[in-house]
Amino acid sequence: MTSTNDPADLDSLELGLLLEGLHRRHGFDLRDYSRASLSRRIERFKQQEGIASTLGLLERALREGDLWERLLRELTIHTTSMFRDPTFFLAFREKVVPLIRTYPFIRIWVAGCSTGEELYSTAIILHEEGLLDRCRLYATDLNEEVVSQAKTGVFPVSSMKESTGSYQAAGGQRPFSEYYTVRDELAILSPALSRTTIFAAHNLVSDASFNEFQMIFIRNVMIYFNRSLQDRVLRLVHGSLCRLGFVCLGRRESMRFSPHEECYEEFVPGEKLYRKVRE
């Protein structure tokens, strides 16, 4: 065994003990999450809760269920915005939709759906292209509470201005306000948009594949994981995708250096829209 006096090593040791404890006590394995973002979120949580040290946080998270619920949400949520990267959704509409239109039935997995922004953006395009009824969407996140929130399709009305601009930049032609009603500062998306969606808790770190899909959205989810966990999740994605199926990553994510790199071609260069061309 080696010992240390270096404060950087001690911070890292404390963080490791916290993650180990949370895994053993609650069964959520955050040990292969990207440490820099995790550290920021833990510091913010400690401030909010008035907890002085990481080990003090561990002690309370082991014993207090409600504090653990709040911590899990703080550490794992990754709220995005509707039609984030409009050119990606434009490419989806113009390049992918004509192909999947020929399929009799389309299964789409929105992995790490968080509060649902990506899901509803996709559903709106499928609806406008007349494909939504032929699709089965699976929206999953590791946190059940977040999945329930996604299912409601409720967003702050203040976010609708940005969503509208992004929708238009993504090739949307209708008044975006057709898709929601407003009540008490909340925008409630039309329930018809999630009519063909199954919402479920699924943990990319520990759960297995549960179906075979023609398309998987996993954009800006794996940025919160370290390289080894990214490889594991990409294996799960690869095994869940049918031949000639599509995988969508975030704008600054890539298949490069992944275990299955040679099985994919970049279907729309620059948009991180990959197609599986080999098993």
Binding site: S34, R35, A36, S37, R40, R41, H78, T79, T80, R84, N220, I223, Y224, N226, R227, G250, R252
Partner: peptide, 17 residues
């Protein structure tokens, strides 16, 4: 539209607020 963070092994990105 991404935060850039430094880790011992390389850069990490986030879409935190």
């Amino acid at each position: 539209d991404y935060h850039l963070l430094v880790e011992p092994a390389g850069f990490a990105l986030s879409i935190d607020p």
